[in-house]
Simulated scan of single mutants.
Amino acid sequence: MMAAPETRQQYGDQGKGAERPGARQPGGLGQGAEQGPQQPEESNRDRVRRLLLVPLGFRFRRGTDATEARRSLDALADELGYMSDASLSALRGMLASKGEGSARCFWPEPATFRGFAEIVQPRPLEEVPALVRWFRSVEGPRAVEAGTLVETFLWFEKKKAPPLTPQARAMVTQRAQQNHRRLEVISDRRAREVRNDAQDLEWERWYRSTLARVEALVARVQREKQGQAVEQDRQGQAPQTDPAQDTTRTAEEITR
């Protein structure tokens, strides 16, 4: 069986006067003394390993490829990197008893980690990979042109998935039309100096704030996409296929 990732090397008691490599001498560095190599800054992936994966200490089942096992834990650490130290510690406590197998000693499925992580500290919607990929594809500019940015964003927030089916797209479009009509009524009342209801004004502020938030997200991911295309062209690489335009891939593959 493959053990969980090893912790960093710990320096134990090496005898009286023994020191941890790289430690400073008492009184500081003397004249002419060379300063030891600085410890590299801890990466976000290593932070998740230290606070969550290593303490859990689960194992992979017999026969699991070592490279694939390491890759899966690295991907999990990257995915949970948005969480704070306190949240990772809380998540560790929740997952300690969630191991698989009769002895509860094997790694739970990634979905188990995601589910409990969502309870402890929900991931900012702008960082959800499926949403980023959706707005990064041709669907981002399409939503801008159709005026459905906010409604698509809210669909993601509720469903944790994009509006893929014709029925889902129709519902998003209908909701957008209703919201635009409400904005028009509020603006018309303001232009005619007719008092708007406080609830309508609060909703208008929320809607416009959310719209600005999503517009910024789409602009950012589209800039990143264009920058990568320029870099690939400079290096003579073939451009990557836009997932939303690749009809050979399933909806689950596009948004996974």
Rank of each mutant, 00 (worst) to 15 (best):
M1C: 14
M1D: 03
M2H: 13
A4Y: 06
Q9F: 15
Q10L: 10
Q10V: 13
Q14N: 15
G15K: 06
G15E: 13
K16V: 15
P21H: 01
G22C: 05
R24Q: 12
Q35F: 03
P40N: 01
E42H: 00
S43Y: 03
R49K: 13
R49S: 13
R62D: 04
G63T: 04
G63A: 04
T64S: 08
E68C: 09
A69V: 02
A69T: 02
A75V: 09
A77C: 12
D78S: 10
L80M: 11
L80N: 01
M83Y: 03
L88P: 04
L91N: 04
A96E: 12
K98L: 13
G99T: 05
E100H: 05
C105S: 15
C105D: 13
W107T: 02
P110M: 06
R114K: 14
F116Y: 12
E118K: 15
Q121G: 08
E127A: 01
V128M: 15
V138L: 08
E139N: 01
G140E: 01
P141E: 00
G147R: 01
F156A: 00
E157C: 03
A168E: 13
T173G: 10
T173E: 09
Q174I: 08
R175A: 14
R175G: 07
H180R: 15
R181N: 12
L183Q: 10
D188S: 14
R189K: 07
R190I: 12
A191I: 10
E193G: 00
N196M: 14
D197H: 03
L201D: 07
W206I: 15
R208H: 11
A212E: 02
R213H: 05
A216F: 03
A216Y: 04
G227L: 09
Q237H: 14
Q245L: 15
T247D: 01
R249C: 06
R249M: 10
A251D: 05
E252T: 07
I254G: 11
